[in-house]
Write a protein that binds this DNA or RNA. Structure first.
Length: 415
DNA sequence: TCTGGGGTCCTAGGACCC
DNA sequence: TCTGGGGTCCTAGGACCC
């Protein structure tokens, strides 16, 4: 038998969630420091970049001058004071804050700063899980000194390193798991550092809205509200039987565990992509017959871009799908599993065309997308003995001469 | 003048096989 | 003739996240 008294202390998990503050907007402020302190929103197309005047000063586009279908990607905290936030349409935002500055999105710049801040973190704490361009989870359990102060010093060091490398602030939550850390990183935004232990859950987590739990979205929170459950504490107090009856076995059990702050998911440092896609919303709604040429051109473009993405990332796809959004916002998807993996624009285009034929295209379209799923690394496919499917890879060089493009045709006019 | 683009995961039914 | 089930793949839709 082991003696519990003599056993070495078991290291508790300490997980950090690091979230960059108003990331895109903050990157833009590095470039345009004269905008600091002003309401600024990022979004829309390419046509509202600042204009440099003869005297070297810049003239920025104002939100009131925007016309189009874009949404806000990020807003500075000054802009958020007007009630504008990510996700809302720029037209609607213009009504709320007409004088706010509007800047176009520049993903290349954001990706650059994303790489920089993640590298700064990894230099201190190598176990990092990517959660998109502006946030990460970090397992700091085994870092020197972390157990002694619950991660306080490590958290400060991470913030300091991120700021030193990028000039940007972030907010960090440090708790025993990802679920709680995600909640805590938001508590003291911007530039916050929030530590929480399991025994503090009732006082600090339970008063929060159930919607704060990552995974409870608008639908689930509405269903909870219908049950009289608004806070995480009320969710924790709800009978498991009720949750199971309302949400099913899996989701019901998860809701109960989450409300009690239980989450054993590890920090995952690498995962293979499951799908790669391209989609575009048109400037105006298009009709399959009347706008056939435009739609065909856009589809070809999307397929070509998708093939480029696959090639660049080194993947081939066995399941090609399309996504359509109609003028009434209804979304339809179709997909097709191929006999062999492909990475060829023509092969993708052919499969997308076959998918498209299975959709009623009477209504006008707002969005068109193409997706490549069931991915395999090209190296695994064409590689050595461990690649039984090698013979079935459709190469880009393969002739596809017989293929023609009968898309968006053979349809009755709608008016 | 509503509502982007790129993802993941889950559910559920039918086909097909054992 | 009826009854039974498990497992996997494919497809479509939906919730949710950044």
């Amino acid at each position: 038998m082991y003696s519990l008294v003599d056993a070495p202390p078991v290291a508790k998990r300490l997980i950090a969630h690091l979230d960059m503050d108003a990331f895109y907007a903050s990157v833009e402020l590095l470039r345009y420091p004269d905008l600091r302190g002003r309401p600024v929103v990022i979004g829309g197309g390419r046509d509202h970049a600042p204009e440099v005047l003869a005297d070297g000063t810049r003239r920025y586009a104002q939100l009131r001058s925007y016309a189009g279908r874009g949404v806000i990607t990020t807003a500075t905290y000054e802009a958020r004071a007007f009630g504008v936030h990510s996700g809302i349409g720029l037209m609607k935002a213009a009504a709320l804050a007409p004088d706010a500055v509007l800047l176009p999105v520049d993903f290349d710049a954001y990706r650059k700063y994303s790489r920089l801040f993640k590298a700064a973190v990894r230099a201190i704490a190598p176990i990092v899980e990517d959660r998109g361009i502006d946030e990460i989870y970090v397992d700091i359990s085994a870092l020197p000194g972390a157990q002694a102060d619950g991660g306080q010093a490590v958290g400060r060091a991470l913030k300091q390193a991120v700021f030193a490398t990028t000039g940007l602030t972030c907010s960090i939550g440090i708790t025993p798991n990802k679920l709680l850390s995600k909640i805590c990183s938001e508590i003291d935004k911007p530039d916050g550092l929030t530590l929480l232990t399991a025994d503090e859950i009732p006082q600090r987590i339970w008063p929060l809205a159930a919607r704060k739990i990552n995974g409870i979205g608008p639908k689930a929170s509405a269903r909870l509200e219908a049950l009289g459950i608004r806070t995480i504490g009320e969710l924790a107090a709800a009978s498991p039987a009720l949750l199971l009856a309302e949400f099913g076995k899996r989701t019901g059990a998860w809701l109960h565990a989450a409300a009690h702050g239980r989450d054993e998911r590890p920090v995952v440092t690498y995962s293979e992509p499951k799908s790669i896609s391209r989609e575009t919303t048109f400037e105006r709604d298009l009709h399959a017959v009347r706008d056939k040429a435009a739609l065909t051109g856009l589809l070809n473009e999307l397929c070509t871009e998708l093939a480029g993405d696959l090639a660049r990332k080194g993947y081939a796809s066995k399941t090609i799908g399309i996504k359509l959004r109609f003028d009434d916002f209804r979304i339809v998807t179709r997909d097709l599993t191929l006999p062999a993996h492909t990475m060829d624009a023509r092969g993708i285009r052919r499969a997308a065309g076959a998918c498209l034929k299975r959709v009623d295209l009477t209504r006008r379209l707002r969005l068109l997308g193409v997706r490549a799923g069931a991915l395999a690394k090209i190296a695994d496919l064409v590689g050595g003995a461990a690649a039984p499917e090698a013979a079935h890879v459709a190469r880009a060089e393969e002739p596809t001469a017989r293929y023609e493009l009968p898309l968006f045709a053979d349809l009755p006019p709608d008016d």
